[in-house]
Computed example of a mutant assay.
Amino acid sequence: MKAYLANGLFSIGDRYVNEIIADKLRTAMPSIELYVPQENDAINDKNAYANSLAIAQADIHSLKESDVLIAVIDGVEIDSGVAAEIGAFSMLNRPIVALFSDVRQLGRTNSKKIDALIADGTENQFIYRNLFVVGLIKQNGVIVSTVEEAVEAVKKYL
């Protein structure tokens, strides 16, 4: 199985999270061929140079070759590159496993949070995800909350 891990890759936090997810996927499924863009020095060694076409061509090629996309949709907004990768991959009608670990999705049954939101929209205790991107994920995939759930979801597509 070939898989593609989509997440931001420019901050230490993103790179660290990518390493953790990649390690857990590779440990759980030793035969997986996992493409992690930050590991592709030809386009992501920031001491070197790769233009936009080279980056797009490398990532699109890997998306087309992949059987499943694992996409991290955390952050203030979904990373623009991740959103683009989800959009491109959704056109292939292949499964997408999205990891959304933001703790603000907790407490959905807390009536005080719901009542506060109804009374005043600025008292939103939750987080918004772009519904178009969420819909693209749900067409052929799932949204999970933990790395372990993501690994189990990917295993189902083996």
Rank of each mutant, 00 (worst) to 15 (best):
K2E: 05
A3I: 02
Y4E: 03
F10E: 05
F10Y: 06
I12W: 07
G13E: 11
D14V: 04
R15I: 07
Y16P: 00
V17W: 11
N18E: 08
A22C: 08
D23S: 12
D23Y: 03
L25F: 03
L25M: 07
R26F: 12
A28G: 02
A28M: 03
A28I: 02
I32Q: 14
Q38D: 03
Q38W: 11
Q38F: 07
D41Q: 14
A42R: 13
K46F: 06
N47H: 12
A48Y: 05
N51M: 08
A54E: 09
A54S: 07
A54C: 04
A54G: 02
I55D: 09
I55A: 10
A56F: 06
A56R: 10
A56V: 03
Q57F: 14
A58S: 04
D59S: 05
D59N: 01
I60D: 15
I60M: 15
I60Q: 10
H61V: 01
L63E: 09
L63Y: 11
K64E: 10
E65Q: 14
E65N: 15
S66M: 12
S66L: 11
V68P: 01
I70L: 13
I70Q: 09
A71D: 14
V72G: 01
I73V: 07
D74E: 15
A83F: 14
A84N: 04
F89C: 05
L92S: 00
L92W: 05
P95L: 10
V97A: 01
A98F: 14
F100K: 07
D102G: 02
V103A: 04
R104C: 04
Q105F: 10
L106G: 06
G107Y: 00
R108L: 06
R108H: 03
I114W: 11
A116T: 02
I118R: 10
I118K: 12
A119E: 12
T122N: 07
T122G: 06
N124C: 03
F126C: 01
I127D: 08
I127V: 12
N130M: 09
L131H: 02
G135A: 10
G135M: 09
L136F: 04
I137N: 01
I137V: 00
I137T: 00
N140V: 13
N140G: 05
G141S: 01
V142C: 01
I143F: 09
V144G: 09
V144I: 15
S145H: 14
S145E: 13
T146A: 11
T146D: 10
E148T: 03
E152T: 00
A153M: 05
V154N: 15
K156A: 05
K156W: 14
Y157K: 14
L158T: 04
L158S: 05
